[in-house]
């Protein structure tokens, strides 16, 4: 199992290495624009819970970015499936569905970690230093586990690359803006707060922000992310089985 898991992961890493000079700038553009527009220009005089808006924003951006980058593995899978037909090569090999999903999820997590490093460097350029402790990285790991697992499952269900774009618009974009990434959830009415706590990104943003300020994040956030990730992972394994026709 480990052998085939590594094969799937290694393939994604080789492709990523080849594209790295294009990927790093693309990982930097959106966060940089958010930092300039919201953090520097608009939020200059805003303070939230004793932190500057820039300090508040960067952990949110990391939560959002680790979500979008781990979810982006779905596009890679679809390119391999619909354009290059590589998925057939993997299906014809003695690779279990579990190993395939695990390899792709691991690749999604790696993307999320690398793009997080890019944001941390951008943060340093704006004079923001966060506490990158173990709980901080654990929250990013679980967040990217959730969304990479979701990505693999959805990539197996869609029938074209166009469907994938639609899913991103309907699933990822709303979460990116509503999950406490850009503003404190206390600004929502109570019913709204209850609603956004259903979203895994809300728990990720909360845990990442709390850890990066040097506090102990609520364990419930980690548990929600872990169990949601496990559910998505096993659904993805079933979806790979279903995709065989």
């Amino acid at each position: 199992m480990i052998h085939s898991l590594f094969a799937v992961y290694y393939r994604e890493m080789l492709i990523m290495r080849r594209r790295l000079t294009r990927l790093v700038p693309s990982w930097s553009v959106s966060p940089l624009l958010y930092l300039i527009a919201f953090g520097y220009a608009m939020g200059k005089h805003v303070e939230i819970d004793g932190h500057s808006y820039m300090e508040f924003l960067i952990p949110g951006l990391i939560a959002m970015n680790s979500m979008t980058q781990s979810f982006a593995i779905a596009s890679e899978i679809n390119i391999a499936r619909f354009y290059w037909h590589i998925f057939e090569e993997i299906q014809a090999a003695p690779v279990s569905d579990f190993s395939y999903v695990a390899g792709e999820v691991l690749a999604g997590i790696t993307r999320a970690f690398l793009s997080t490093c890019v944001i941390l460097i951008l943060g340093l350029m704006f004079g923001v230093t966060l506490s990158c402790n173990l709980l901080f990285w654990l929250a990013i790991l679980l967040n990217s586990f959730v969304f990479a697992s979701l990505a693999v499952g959805l990539a197996m269900l869609v029938k074209s690359h166009g469907d994938q774009v639609l899913l991103t618009s309907f699933v990822i974009t709303p979460m990116a803006f509503l999950g406490g990434t850009f503003f404190p959830l206390e600004n929502f009415p109570e019913w709204g707060q209850r609603l956004v706590y259903i979203l895994p990104i809300t728990h990720a943003a909360q845990a990442i922000r709390s850890a990066s300020f040097g506090n102990i994040p609520p364990i419930s956030s980690y548990l929600v992310l872990f169990f949601t990730g496990c559910i998505f992972f096993f659904i993805s394994v079933l979806c790979v089985k279903k995709a065989k026709d």
Binding site: A7, Y10, I15, W84
Partner: peptide
């Protein structure tokens, strides 16, 4: 249909296949 990894080298394509087959 040709189902090779176009962005990878000849050697890398064969390596991945070898890994997939343990």
């Amino acid at each position: 249909s040709i189902n090779l990894d176009q962005e990878l080298s000849v050697y890398e394509n064969l390596t991945i296949h070898g890994l997939l087959f343990r």
